[in-house]
Design a protein around this nucleic acid. Structure first.
Length: 812
RNA sequence: GCUGAGGUGGUGGAAUGGCAGACACGCAGGUCUCAGGAGCCUGUCCCCGCAAGGGCGGUAUGGGUUCAAAUCCCAUCCUCAGCACCA
């Protein structure tokens, strides 16, 4: 038999699959669908091992369910807008669209060399005007629904990318793309009111049983719902109120001062009353120079008292001082707090530093406020009519009292901020709005969509958005009054593109709507979504939000777009992430060239469960290559004629192991998403076939088992399986063959080996019939040569027989 | 600090109340061979033993529940990930 030639075989089947459109799908009413989606790829120019892992995992699901008889949708596309293309334009003087298309062409070939079962007829890129037209259409729909607004806001600015960033895109004060330190500037920007859906997103989290707990927890934290109260504190003699948010209304009587964020507008409103206003201004200026990180990391809280200003604690009626300090965030709650130093550590530190009285209002067992604040539950003291009540109850009682008295109300607060979606860059979806001096902001009429990106643009990397340099783009007539007007030059955050692409895949060629609702109803929701954990609070929140908006626009029926989510682990080399800068990259192309895609896929799927980190191992790859060749050589061994005849026992054994393996692989893929153990059980079956020395005259059972090996391995290593399937005489693709079923009654043996424990230690094993009852087991144990001696002259305290599992005897 | 996931051989990892270490890598030995860095076979948690065999030895540590614990409960330690002055 010839050596296995992976390069030739893989090319052959990739061509056949493509020519015969084996993996193209269409809606078939009455046939159960399965939508499998790996997060689409940014066309950076090169596939890396993380991609290979992502798409190999997706392909196992897609191929498995196809063989199980489901109507599988497994599409592929390109998340093609974004900064790298524009940076390439600046650096290499190549148009972003050209750069992107080159990369797509190259990566498409790489994808094809992996043999992923994609429906290529549905391919699209988000930079196609036929796609981004619908971004614009959705934008206008949301604008009409009041979900989009413009606001002058203090926003995150990346000086290197020259654009603003959403909150989610600032990680530890750094830009998520380029790692530069971000700044805060004041700009007029476009926002989407994602906070309108904060509660619905949180509520929806509870129904996502197919999502990893880790992602749900991250989203929960990110949305950050907390219950509390808003309370107004009167500024004495000023006819003004300072509104605060607290989650601890039970500590209201202990509020001995107030603090506003330095950015709080009240300061300028009452500046004439502040006797040390210059000092306050100086402090505000100093804080604004600090980054969020510097503010948070500074050990010592700083602040300045607003001299001449007194607030009144509405519960005690006492006058208390007001400070401004940058440990209070302008972006959370109302940007001001009531400070309760006895029961909040931050306030405690601040009070100590500025000699503010600390009033204890919650008393716990042995609690003390001498060395630090007491933040736990307890009994209220020094709290007027509420003294003596448990703090847990007081939370509610005080809020209700406050509400009745008319100086506040119960409320909830979210950490989630509205989604800033405008970017001052070229390579994105133009925001379809027109600024008219007379009519204000006017949406582009639907018939004029898409607003296409102009070609006459200069990429200098300096100054304002490149779109502002295009005269043809900039100048338009107002759709309402017909006068000269200007186009909006901001483009959309690329996370808009990825918020609904899974719906476009249901109907990618539609040119009169974003997608046909009936088609989307057929395919949605995505049964299995696969991608990296880094999208937990960005893409996966935005998409869920977008889908809920579409549901409210009657474009979608379900509440959630992704039923099951698998977040694959990182691919590392010697424990650290592969990266260009570290120079520790293993190139997929080289591995495919040397061993073939099957080997690369097998290693990735076998070396670790999909969710865990996977460390690359050259030896491990070598081992997978050996296994693939072992399957290849088994073809001859199974077909070889020998004079040995198989015994009945051999035959039933092999049949039983075969059925057991089918069961194990099916469950591991379908129920446990644990591909490594699925593969190892097939390896065991192959090892069994190697160790049997007959391979003729066994009623074709070893051949049956070999065919089973091929069928079971097809989702993992499809190319070699197709080749062997053809060698076995089949005319159809193994990829479209039915997944094998198993017979529980064959897996069960008539005899079973029972372990026998005495006082918790394994002492031996007995062979017994499956249906055996406890009395029979006792007899067998007592006559067993190995076990009986342990029972001699001993008193049996307990005898436990767990059917078909174990025998345990306790003796004295 | 908060949230979440974890801690098992030389390594990746199996086993989720019932035989710890499946399967693979690595290593060692054998076999075939002119040759082997190919293939095939055997062994490989630890301790005692040449072996057969034996071990209330063994799943981060200490305790507990149970006939039975890697698995459940309590405490402690450690690792990873996310968030972090969110009032």
């Amino acid at each position: 038999m010839l050596e296995y030639n992976s390069a030739e075989v893989e090319k052959k089947w990739q061509r056949k699959w493509e020519e015969n459109r084996v993996f193209e799908s269409k809606e078939i009413l009455g046939k159960e669908k399965y939508y499998c989606l790996s997060m689409f790829v940014y066309p950076s120019g090169n596939l890396h091992m993380g991609h290979v892992r992502n798409y190999s995992i997706g392909d196992v699901f897609a191929r498995f369910y196809k063989m199980k008889g489901k109507n599988v949708l497994h599409p592929v596309g390109w998340d093609a807008f974004g900064l790298p293309a524009e940076n390439a334009a600046i650096k290499n003087n190549i148009h972003p669209s050209k750069w992107t298309k080159q990369n797509i062409n190259r990566m498409r070939e790489q994808f094809k060399s992996l043999g992923i079962s994609y429906d290529w007829s549905r391919e699209f890129a988000t930079c196609d005007p036929e796609y981004y037209k619908w971004n614009q259409w959705f934008f206008i729909k949301m604008w009409q629904k009041g979900l989009i607004f413009r606001k002058n806001a203090n926003v995150n600015w990346c000086p290197s990318c020259n654009t603003v960033l959403a909150n989610e895109q600032v990680l530890n004060g750094m830009c998520w793309r380029c790692d530069s330190r971000t700044e805060h500037i004041n700009l007029e920007q476009w926002f989407i009111k994602i906070t309108n859906y904060a509660d619905k997103l949180l509520e929806g989290n509870k129904s996502l049983n197919g999502w990893p707990e880790q992602v749900l927890a991250m989203q929960r934290d990110w949305i950050g719902k907390s219950f509390g109260a808003e309370i107004d504190f009167v500024l004495n003699g000023l006819n003004k109120k300072l509104k605060i948010f607290t989650t601890r209304p039970d500590t209201l009587f202990g509020a001995t001062f107030m603090v506003t964020a330095p950015e709080h507008e009240i300061i300028s409103e009452i500046k004439s009353e502040i006797t040390n206003y210059n000092e306050v201004l100086k402090y505000i200026a100093a804080s604004s120079c600090k980054s969020n990180i510097e503010r948070a990391s500074s050990r010592h809280k700083t602040g300045v008292k607003l001299e001449g200003i007194k607030a009144i604690n509405p519960a005690t009626g006492k006058e208390i001082p007001v400070f401004t300090a940058d440990y209070v965030l302008t972006t959370y709650g109302t940007g001001a707090i009531m400070a309760v130093p006895a029961h909040d550590q931050r306030d405690w530190e601040f009070a100590k530093k500025y000699n503010i009285p600390v009033t204890e209002v919650i008393k716990g067992n042995n609690s003390s406020i001498e060395k630090c604040a007491y933040e736990d539950e307890g009994i209220l003291v020094n709290s007027g009519q509420f003294s003596g009540i448990k703090s847990a109850e007081a939370l509610n009682l005080v809020s209700e009292w406050v509400e009745k008295q008319g100086f506040g109300k119960k409320t909830v607060n979210f950490k989630l901020k509205n989604w800033l979606i405008s970017r001052q860059r070229y390579w994105g979806t133009p925001i379809p709005m027109i600024h008219c001096k007379e009519c204000g902001i006017v949406p582009v009429p639907e018939k004029d969509l898409p607003v296409v990106l102009p070609e006459d643009v200069k990429f200098t990397g300096k100054g304002e958005s490149p779109l502002k340099s295009s005269e043809t783009f900039l100048n338009v007539k107002c759709p309402l009054c017909g006068m000269d007007a200007k186009r909006e030059t901001d483009t959309m955050d690329t996370f808009v593109d990825s918020s609904w692409y899974y719906l476009r895949f249901c109907d990618p060629l539609n040119n009169h709507s974003a997608f046909d609702t009936a088609k989307a109803d057929y395919w949605m929701p995505v049964n299995q979504y696969i991608g990296g954990i880094e999208h937990a609070c960005m893409h996966l929140v935005y998409s869920r939000f977008w889908y809920k908006v579409m549901r409210d626009l009657n474009l979608a029926k379900q509440d959630e777009p992704f039923t099951n989510l698998l977040t694959q682990g990182m691919v590392t080399l010697n424990g650290s992430a592969m990266s260009k800068s570290k120079g520790n990259i293993v190139s997929p192309d080289k591995i495919i060239e040397k061993y073939g895609a099957d080997t690369a896929r097998l290693f990735i799927l076998f070396a670790a469960p999909p969710q865990k980190q996977l460390d690359w191992s050259a030896e491990g790859v070598e081992g997978c290559w050996r296994f693939i060749n072992r399957i290849w050589r088994l073809f001859d061994i199974v077909n070889k004629k020998t004079e040995f005849a198989a015994s009945e026992k051999d035959k039933t054994d092999i049949l039983r192991i075969m059925h057991r393996t089918i069961k194990k692989v099916s469950i591991d893929i379908e129920k446990k998403t644990q591909f490594n153990t699925a593969i190892s059980s097939v390896i065991e079956l192959v090892n069994v076939l190697y160790s049997y020395k007959y391979h003729s005259n066994d009623d074709g059972i070893s051949m049956e088992a070999y065919k089973t090996v091929i069928l079971l391995m097809t989702p993992f290593i499809p190319h070699i399986c197709e080749e062997i399937w053809e060698m076995l005489g089949y005319k159809e693709y193994v990829s479209t063959h039915m997944w094998p079923g198993y017979d529980e009654s064959i897996i069960e043996t008539s005899y079973i080996e029972l372990p026998v424990q005495i006082n918790g230690r394994l002492k031996g094993k007995i062979m017994v019939p499956v249906q055996i009852d406890e009395d029979e087991v006792k007899k067998t144990v007592n006559t067993n040569g190995k076990i009986a001696p342990y029972l001699k002259d001993k008193q049996i305290i307990k005898f436990i027989y767990v059917k078909n599992k174990i025998v345990t005897i306790v003796v004295k």
